[in-house]
């Protein structure tokens, strides 16, 4: 009798371990639904492969660009892509499908999304004075991508609600798995989930530690790529000089430490890189930006 009770107990334990609810949605052979359902408890960004990471970034970017579209000037966007791609080549993840874009907004900000998506606002672009300063903005964002800061942010309890399988699925994959077409309710539910999750993630912002790491590693990436690494400090000096309650900085300061805090945190890195010369490329910046 005792053995039977022990076996029943064991069976209950085993069943409970494998009874995580899954919707069965898959990308390739990967059961995203199961991962996500279990992931609420054991989220690990390393369980997400590159294809899923890129899809996540693409979905987030779609929402970001739904809030504010791209500045539709091919020359300027290509210039930002050239600077960004050169930095990406020198980063720890050169093989991601990197994409850089200028968002048509007068606010001063920059954004990254997983998988290689990086954006800078037109307002920020106009505040800068050199290619090295542009590279500094992009380098900071590139580090958020290479270090998977947004994927890791999903570990945070306040973002648990944002983890849904739809984050890692394209509209097409969702349609193939559910039979939903673009007009029906299921498809609209996909879009709504993506939007809500992205709004959560960007509104909350990343951990301060991630921001400080992006500054420090960003300076290193600038130096490695041949740029003047201190351009990143130039940018922070510039931000520090704009009144903190300036409307153009509202979202930046809601999601980032203040420029003053970031400047203080960079003193050690500035000392480490003191022997390295780099290029500012002021003339090329003015020439390329003035093409608008």
């Amino acid at each position: 009798m005792k053995i039977i009770i022990q076996r029943i107990t064991l069976l209950i334990i085993v069943l409970s371990l494998f009874s995580c609810k899954s919707t069965g949605l898959k990308i390739g052979n990967f059961d995203v639904g199961k991962l996500v359902d279990q992931g609420v408890k054991i989220w690990d960004a390393n369980n997400i492969d590159q294809a899923q990471e890129v899809q996540f970034g693409k979905n987030m970017s779609a929402v970001l660009l739904g809030a504010r579209g791209l500045y539709q000037n091919k020359n300027i966007n290509e210039y930002v892509n050239q600077v960004g791609m050169w930095l990406a080549i020198n980063s720890s993840r050169p093989d991601l499908p990197w994409r850089f874009g200028v968002i048509n907004s007068s606010s001063i900000n920059a954004f990254a999304a997983p998988g290689g998506y990086v954006f800078i606002t037109l307002g920020m672009l106009h505040k800068l004075e050199s290619e090295a300063q542009l590279a500094a903005v992009l380098a900071h964002e590139i580090i958020h991508v290479t270090q998977k800061h947004y994927l890791n942010a999903l570990k945070d309890s306040s973002l648990r609600g944002a983890i849904t399988e739809t984050l890692f699925m394209s509209a097409e994959a969702y349609q193939n798995n559910t039979g939903a077409n673009v007009n029906d309710q299921q498809y609209r539910a996909w879009a709504k989930k993506i939007t809500l999750a992205t709004q959560d993630i960007y509104s909350k912002g990343l951990d301060k530690t991630d921001e400080f790491q992006a500054d420090q590693q960003g300076m290193l990436l600038l130096a490695k790529s041949g740029y003047d690494a201190y351009a990143l400090i130039d940018n922070l000096q510039l931000l520090a000089s704009i009144a903190a309650d300036d409307a153009s900085l509202a979202l930046l300061y809601k999601t980032h430490p203040t420029a003053e805090q970031r400047l203080i945190a960079l003193s050690e890195q500035a000392e480490k890189l003191s022997g390295i010369n780099g290029l500012s490329l002021v003339k090329r910046y003015n020439k390329r930006i003035s093409t608008e």
Binding site: A62, V63, A67, S106, G123, Y202, S248, A250, L251, K254
Partner: peptide
Amino acid sequence: GFDEKDLANAKAN
């Protein structure tokens, strides 16, 4: 500019 309100009203594009 680009503020939280923009983000709150955003739709995937």
